[in-house]
Design a protein around this nucleic acid. Sequence first.
DNA 1: GAGTGGTCTAGACCACGAG
DNA 2: TCGTGGTCTAGACCACTCA
Lengths: 243, 243
Amino acid sequence: MTETVPSRRQNIADDIRTQIAAGELKAGERLPSETTLASRYGVSTSTLRSALALLQSEGLVEKTHGKGNFVGHASRRHTYAGGGRTQFEASGVDPTLRVTVRTTRLQAQGHLVPLLRVPANTELTQFLCGTSPHSLARIYIPSDLPPKSLPCGPPSCRAFGTRLAEHCPPPTEIRERLTARLPTYEEAETLRIGSTLAVLAITRVTIDATGRVIEAAHLVLPSHRADAYFITRAAPAENRREG
Amino acid sequence: MTETVPSRRQNIADDIRTQIAAGELKAGERLPSETTLASRYGVSTSTLRSALALLQSEGLVEKTHGKGNFVGHASRRHTYAGGGRTQFEASGVDPTLRVTVRTTRLQAQGHLVPLLRVPANTELTQFLCGTSPHSLARIYIPSDLPPKSLPCGPPSCRAFGTRLAEHCPPPTEIRERLTARLPTYEEAETLRIGSTLAVLAITRVTIDATGRVIEAAHLVLPSHRADAYFITRAAPAENRREG
DNA sequence: GAGTGGTCTAGACCACGAG
DNA sequence: TCGTGGTCTAGACCACTCA
């Protein structure tokens, strides 16, 4: 086992991580400015910033443009519950949570056509839900679904990564694809995160008993604030779900 | 809607992305060197590299130290199937896949104790599975599980993000937590990825009928090569799984 | 306006891959 | 050995926050 030398970025990140774990830096506390830290560690600001990026992706550090770097609040971390379980709330309520919803009508185009399994130009209702700074949701529903298919309506966007078509008719299948990637320019702007912070992107399709897609959603969760959780229970008769 | 100006990084990434989508750059093709591209776009190498980082996280570009940047092979992308579904293989077999397994015995400590729900210092068997360059798996199993609990054994590590304890006894519950973050130094080295490429980290716990944890796993999937997929089917009697 | 983080530059130097 | 990407520097300049 040849012991290799970690980069300076890693050493600095490890050092700060240790300080946080040891309680020398407390949740919510502001770190010294990046220039201060850079000179303290004897590195350039770029290197120091890349060290902070590591900690940020772990949720240990939160950056705010113009204000500073802060030790992360673990309680402000949210968990997306997969499989249609709408109960989530990791722990408590985040006072900084802001909710915005924009409803638009549009016609199915591009990737939405195969996703929703509809003919091109089918009328869709789009819900653009931002639960800043935790998530960005783009939810698409065929406009011809009966209105009562949306009993929860936009307010349920308050729930993190929420489903809009709340089982009317009840969904029989939910498919969720998760990827880690960097945010697009628009996503970074909306979520007010740096364009170097990875996000957890979830594409969710909900299908009813007739095989019809009753909802498709693109969810974007900044990695420093959110993760996803899935629980699968086996049916007693070895009748587990299969793809 | 105030139209804001994207950064240079975004413009360059968009330009190259368009070229790939248009087929001007084909899968497997080598891009010009970073210095060449940088001068062509009139930016510094750092800026150009951050543009490539965007494309890399989408799987459109693959970087290899010393060789160059290449247009990504979509077919070499792998999908982790959640919920214990071992069938996965997105499409075909990746010829570059290398599999290594290291088996170690150790005693439960730190985060492994609550994860496996065992007393501290319980004997564990660790399987370190690297299916380079696609995934890194650290799988922990209580050593006192009957040997036939491991029918598939290490070779099944060949399967991507594989489960080792292949239902003997059959698992009744699988819990999977997914986060996006930057890799640790060791992870980046093992996976041979840059330390700026985000990974999809999965912590999986498998529980048998008695409530005992029969397997815990840490999986690390580089974002440019892998994503995760979950399918949830509702039980007929509105008996959907609940957390 | 003062101080902060965000983007970007124009390099230097190192590590890796292939001939 | 040569060309490549990876790390890092020492700044400049811009955007944001707050007093």
